[in-house]
Amino acid sequence: MKKIASLARIAMTDAEIEAMVPEFNGILGWVEQLGEVDVTGIEPMTAVIPNTLRLREDVVTDGNIRDKVLANAPAAEHGFFGVPKVIE
């Protein structure tokens, strides 16, 4: 639980984690039931209706909207997003 929370960058207290454990087990148990279905030789379904991926032309149609892009940023400076310092 702690690892999943940390990978998803969600801060959880021990009490919250404890409450979440039975819920997660319930979800996992439900998904495991799907394993009972024999799907040998069946292609995975990727769309409900027959459809193929559309491709876009290689044309610049977007961008130059820096103000919009940065509008919700808590700390935009000099045209950049400002984030807490992260150094390798």
């Binding site: 892009v69 000099h78 997003f81 400002g82 984030v83 807490p84 310092k85 992260v86």
Partner: peptide
């Protein structure tokens, strides 16, 4: 990382 003392700047 070198433009601000406490922040990193992001260019997307």
């Amino acid at each position: 990382h070198d433009q601000h003392p406490t922040m990193s700047y992001v260019d997307l």
